[in-house]
Design a binder for these strands. Structure first.
Lengths: 235, 235
DNA sequence: CGAGGCGTTGAATGGCCTCAACGATGGTGG
DNA sequence: CCACCATCGTTGAGGCCATTCAACGCCTCG
């Protein structure tokens, strides 16, 4: 289904980390002038399209990825073929941290929207982090963040009846409470995130629309009635 | 229900990390002779009894804990009171890593069996890790391990029907395939781990016993028919 | 001996899954 | 430009599985 793309086809340039527009929030935020001189391998940038894989579970982990824009899903599979989306990776997040320890990737990382990524060779990050404690701390923060996310997915998105799970997911997807909009995923992905079937996901979303908890704005965009959704969770 | 215990009551001595019997597998495995001199605060050891809390969600995170023996559950709560066990911490694992970043703990850490712990002040670990890259890597490994566990709990223990979840949990609890025994938890904890009710947990365990997939050995110990359990997962 | 905690079991309900059909949408090729 | 097909979302019917509420036995402990 999802085709792995030779990175060449998606290559979109060589990054200038010093000038990076995400510099504030990005892994390399704490780098000093002198550190940049130690980056010998160029940092490449890519653009990927929905359905393409950033990496696959089991691949030798030799690089990490900073998401500059877009969304990536991390997918794990059970022996019987069942799949579960374990986490989402958003703008300014780093994924593929396993590479830092020389371990193979543990998920399929599959792009859900057009996505720009920077590709950080594990060896480069290893070398830099040996001498720069700030980067060190920054790495721990990323790992902490991933773990918090993982725990939240378990308690919020895999607990209770389907309506509550969907409600919690929607509230999670709305970043700005003043402008409560979000982009919703395909029903299959919804199911894989919440541990329910695509039909149940579809039915519940449809029901929310009828109850005007959701208003469709076109092209997968929805307005969310956060207040009533929250009520639904406390009753 | 679970009472927080002033650590004084459980205090069982001051650790000599150099002579630690877990030295091989423990966080401080990579420490050099010279590093030990930098440990100014003593490393305290404690013994806790089932039901006691190592720490509580929201507590200021100022120390991390190495489990020397026993099992600790990490619990998260939903606003409506529902609770979920998100991970277990076993012998030689470290918990409370949040403290390293100065963040409050994110779970209740509650002891399930009589448990020995070492208490590592966050400041000590921070200081040591600034200068010792081995400890640095060791920390990343712990974090990686926690994250892998978290993902596995989601895909293996929170996916599919109750029977499969329990089967997967049992297989996970058996460490030695040649001697397939495990210690089983209370039904309430089982439910909280798997996202099912205590009744369903009880019913399923009882059914497994009737089918001789499980044989009770007394005091929560069970013999597990790993082969037939695995078959159950692939059909 | 009584009380409370824990595991088990029953009956009934309801929610979710399965299987199936159908409409809408969007991209492709004639 | 339109017919065609594939994909995706929706909806229905039926059945199973898990939940809910309840009762009961067992054990430990005060």
């Amino acid at each position: 289904m999802n085709i792995r793309v030779p990175f060449k086809e998606a290559w979109s340039g060589e990054a200038d980390c010093k000038q990076c527009t995400l510099r504030e929030s990005v892994l390399f935020a704490g780098l000093r002038e002198s550190d940049f001189e130690k980056i010998h391998h160029p940092i490449n940038q890519f653009v990927l399209q929905p359905g393409q894989a950033l990496y696959r579970a089991g691949d030798a982990g030799d690089r990490m990825f900073t998401i500059r824009s877009g969304v990536v899903k991390l997918v794990q599979y059970l022996p019987d073929g069942a799949q579960r989306i374990v986490r989402l990776v958003n703008t300014a997040d780093v994924t593929g941290l396993e590479a830092l320890l020389g371990k193979p990737y543990e998920h399929d990382a599959i792009v859900m929207q057009p996505t720009e990524v920077c590709c950080l060779p594990a060896s480069t990050v290893q070398a830099l982090s040996k001498e720069n404690p700030d980067l060190h701390v920054e790495l721990l923060k990323r790992w902490h963040r991933a773990l918090s996310e993982a725990d939240a997915w378990l308690t919020e998105l895999s607990t209770g009846p389907a309506r509550q799970r969907i409600a919690r997911l929607l509230l999670r997807l709305v970043h700005d409470d003043a402008n409560p909009e979000c982009i919703l995923f395909g029903r299959e992905d919804l199911g894989a995130m919440l541990g329910i079937t695509t039909e149940t996901a579809s039915r519940t979303i449809a029901e929310f629309k009828r109850q005007r908890l959701l208003t469709e704005l076109g092209s997968h965009r929805y307005r969310v009635d956060t207040r009533r959704l929250r009520e639904l969770l406390t009753d």
